[in-house]
Simulated assay, not measured.
Amino acid sequence: MIKHILILQILGLISLGKTYSQDCKKINYQFDFGTTLSIPYENTIEYSTNFDFHPQTNYNSEIGYFLEFLVSCNLNNKYGISTGVNYSYSSLGIIDKIGRFENKGSLSASYVNIPVLFNYRITDKIPISISAGPYIGFIIDAVEKGTSYIDTTGIITMEPEIFETKYNYDTNIKEDYTSIDYGLLLQLDYEVNLTKGLNGVILTRFNYGLKNVLTNDLSNKSSAHEWKNYSIQIGLGLKL
């Protein structure tokens, strides 16, 4: 139900943008790029079991990147609407412990997002704008890779030369994720005039996911039962 409401909301906002497009003072085209800092939805997931070592998974932030193209419609000197296409690659560090086994690596996911932002310029004297609005995203790929270690303390083997204590893994886990994500965006940007008709943009954006992006079926290999995409994007752009 929430997904349907949000999709209808986005379609309504796009229609609203078309309705107001005839009143646009100016159409701008903007290309942005920068870094994506993923924020773990949960830092630690721990299980209460009868194992000697409680199985747990720890997550930490890692750096990714994003690229996007936006089209902006300035309704007046204060208000505007922006939409476009955003490609985002995000990554999380992961340490997974189960008894004598420990996996250390990263979990990365790629999305194509479509944002709809309402822009408000705070003051005419300083070119700072604040923007907010919904987004809908479509997953492209998800991969978990790293190294597995085995604690061999106390283990006796007659052939130690064939007993490996670590090995690398690289697993496509796209099937563990739903195909669609959605949420809200909050952005702050600062414009710098470079030449006539060309501005530079410095932006900071917070991505707040509202949807559990895990499938939660029996084939789901993730230790989490629920996960939402949170991230901060910091970047630069050119605005025509």
Score class of each variant (00 low, 15 high):
L117P: 06
L107Q: 14
L194Y: 06
T171F: 06
D141C: 04
E144V: 11
E161C: 00
I156N: 10
G105T: 10
Y111G: 03
Y182R: 01
G137Y: 06
I126A: 07
D170T: 03
Y190T: 04
I122M: 13
S110D: 14
V143I: 14
I130Q: 09
D181C: 11
T195Y: 13
I140N: 15
I155G: 01
I136K: 07
I150G: 00
T123A: 11
Y149Q: 08
I139T: 02
F163D: 02
I139P: 06
D124H: 11
L188K: 03
F118G: 09
G105M: 10
E159L: 14
N113P: 00
T153G: 01
D141T: 14
V143E: 10
R100M: 06
G146Y: 11
Q187Y: 02
T147P: 03
L203H: 14
D141Q: 14
E164N: 13
V116Q: 06
Y135A: 06
N168D: 15
I140K: 15
I114F: 15
S131C: 04
S129M: 07
E191F: 12
Y182P: 02
N168V: 02
L185Y: 12
T178V: 05
N199H: 11
V192E: 07
G154L: 03
G146P: 08
E102Q: 15
D124K: 15
Y177H: 12
Y111V: 04
N103K: 14
T165Q: 14
I202T: 06
G197H: 07
K145Y: 12
I139Q: 03
Y169N: 04
D141R: 15
E175C: 02
T153R: 12
N193A: 11
V143G: 00
E159R: 13
I126W: 12
E161Y: 11
V192H: 09
P115T: 05
V201Y: 04
P160I: 07
K125A: 09
K196C: 01
M158Y: 06
L107I: 01
D124L: 06
L198T: 11
S129A: 12
N193D: 13
G154A: 04
I202S: 04
F101Q: 12
